[in-house]
């Protein structure tokens, strides 16, 4: 809460505000942990990292501080309006939390294992019971990424050579230790994301989180080694990857038509793989793979394109 007030008070000094908003995000994710939502906490945590990197990149181009230009009356009016809305929200939440409630989720809790083949109910709802919703949602995400791609196309922003106080940006090379550390760390991070992806159906994890973890791991490479380093090693063209992800997710839905079932019906069963032994797999894993691809492509598309602006001229 202190962080929130701080962000508002300090929004004129933008770098500090970004740091504080990171703290707010962390507290939100801790709240999710406390109230038994491990999936949400994981997602919030990894989104937080990406958002902060994004904001820092944007801050590099935007002015470092906001001028104070609102008149006193305007500030007063805005504070009143904000306080009214905040009070209303707090009251509604409190009223909601203290009123009795009946839930429809018993159906999901009972059907998750027999119907969806997974014991992480949140993930089963996402990829199975409400798979059509999720398909729409990753489509929205892909559209946002494409919109950003279109906006950044042909964009020329002159990067400032000085920071807010008129000092030159340091032209230091990328830190050696970070660089040395990141290279062996990349396979590890990717392994973690595969692990999170695979266990998603039964334990906290899944396509969204795994996609974000992969995105963060790859972005860290470019933070540590520089953009040209990362660019030579990463695919350049992300829109096809977005399309591929959507195609995976929609395609597995279409497959169920061939078995004359409704769109996105899932099936699951046990498979015997050499070396690995018996594993239980559900067909929704392909759907989750689609989600994963869309998320990775979105994160990388936006962050690398923003980073590329950097190579333009400087004032």
């Amino acid at each position: 809460m202190l962080g929130t007030i701080g962000t508002t008070l300090l929004h004129h000094r933008r770098l500090l505000a970004v740091v504080l908003i990171g703290i707010v995000g962390l507290v939100v994710s801790l709240t999710f942990v406390r109230f038994s939502a491990p999936d949400l906490a994981l997602t919030q945590l990894s989104v937080e990292v990406v958002t902060i990197v994004l904001m820092l990149l944007a801050l590099y181009y935007l002015p470092q501080s906001s001028p104070k230009e609102s008149s006193r009356a305007r500030v007063g009016r805005d504070i009143l309006l904000a306080a009214g809305i905040g009070g209303g929200m707090a009251f509604t939440t409190y009223a909601l939390l203290t009123s009795p409630f009946s839930t429809i989720s018993d159906f999901y809790l009972q059907q998750s294992v027999p119907g969806g083949g997974g014991s992480n109910v949140v993930n089963v709802i996402l990829v199975d019971f409400r798979g059509f919703d999720t398909l729409g949602e990753i489509a929205v995400l892909a559209m946002a990424a494409l919109g950003a791609h279109a906006l950044l196309d042909q964009l020329r922003v002159l990067a400032p050579k000085h920071d807010g106080a008129g000092r030159l940006w340091a032209q230091e090379p990328h830190p050696l230790f970070l660089k040395m550390l990141m290279q062996p760390l990349l396979p590890l991070a990717l392994a973690v994301s595969v692990y999170i992806f695979l266990r998603g159906h039964n334990l906290p994890g899944g396509g969204f989180v795994a996609g974000l973890v992969t995105g963060v791991a790859l972005i860290l490479q470019s933070l540590a080694g520089g953009l040209t380093f990362a660019e030579n090693r990463l695919p350049r063209n992300y829109p096809p990857l977005l399309g591929l992800g959507l195609a995976f997710a929609a395609g597995i839905g279409l497959v169920s038509w061939f078995f004359s079932r409704p769109f996105l019906t899932s099936t699951h069963g046990h498979f015997h793989l050499p070396l690995l032994g018996n594993i239980e797999l559900a067909s929704v894993i392909i759907f989750d793979l689609g989600v994963y691809l869309v998320v990775v492509a979105t994160v990388l598309l936006i962050l690398t394109e923003l980073g590329k602006l950097h190579k333009g001229e400087q004032i």
Partner: peptide, 27 residues
């Protein structure tokens, strides 16, 4: 579990929206 499933996608879409707004600001 239902609100959790809804919020999980909302978090990720929130990121997409933030990214879009940031590029809009740069534009």
């Amino acid at each position: 579990p239902i609100p959790q499933a809804l919020v999980l996608t909302a978090i990720v879409i929130g990121f997409g929206m933030t990214a879009y707004i940031v590029t809009l600001a740069l534009r």
